[in-house]
Design a protein around this nucleic acid. Sequence first.
DNA 1: AAGACGAAAGTGGTTGA
DNA 2: TCAACAACTTTCGTCTT
Length: 305
Amino acid sequence: HYCGSTHLVKDPDRAEIFCDECGVVVDGQRIDHGTEYRIFDFGEGISRVRVGASPTFTIHDKGLSTEISCRNKDSFGKSIPTRNRSTLYRMRRWQRRIRISGATERTLAYGLTELNRIASRMGLPRNIIETAALIFRRASRENLIRGRNIDSVASASIYAACRLCKVPRTLNEINKFDKVDVKELSRTFRFIKMRLKLKLKLITPPDLIPRFCSNEELNFSEPEKIIRRALEIYYEVEERKLINGRAPESVAAGIIFIASLLEKQKRTQKEVAKTADVTEVTVRAVYKEIANGLSLLEQISLKSF
DNA sequence: AAGACGAAAGTGGTTGA
DNA sequence: TCAACAACTTTCGTCTT
């Protein structure tokens, strides 16, 4: 499992196995195959019935809620006798509790729906969606959603899940599918990350390179070759400390551009820039720096002849 | 005509006093 | 908290293919 931890936790209520270190859902489809049993033990006062495991974190069953008026009148408007008022009081108290939980449930349902919408439009794999849903539920449980835009929490959960699962998306990529602005998404993410103590490693170019190379925009015939070449270049660059303070997308883009030249599958700077969501100017800057540092310039210009 | 190049000016985020 | 700073963007004119 990616984060190296062997500390996996099984949550029998949710039929989930997830990593205690990083929170990634390892196996979300798992069904509890434990003994099916019922206990009719009046002595213990417990009746346990296993009806089956909830298959996913992402679906929520919505409930209905009821209001009880605070006036002491019945449905005909007649005053309710004092001897019944204590009963009514108790009913109200219960109803209030249920309604409050109903509100958070509604938030959960709405948020998970939104989360699913974004994630499926992005075409994210199952395990990432489950991880995102788990994060969202934790955020809800820890009361982090109140006073915050539900949509932004949903987006932030997806962003975090992508990073946890080692296939990070940029904030901008997610922002193309959601309804919040990048700044708010960024704020919410930082907040959630801190409060849930998510352990996220920094994004590095190798996290991005495989996905970028496989992008349909670039349409490499054999992405694996480009990926391998790009990674070679990256490790060389890393070793020689040729780049400082560049955003990982920028570095990835510059490297992929060079790799496309060396593999004789040249792509334009514009194309590479578009898939990495940076500008051509940035691609140029990075690729120049690297090409100079590795003395690749003559090689590249030779190849292009 | 399209790509590559780099200058100039503006923006948002990080850093260090 | 403020100012300096590098990275990044946008825009644009020029050169190359």
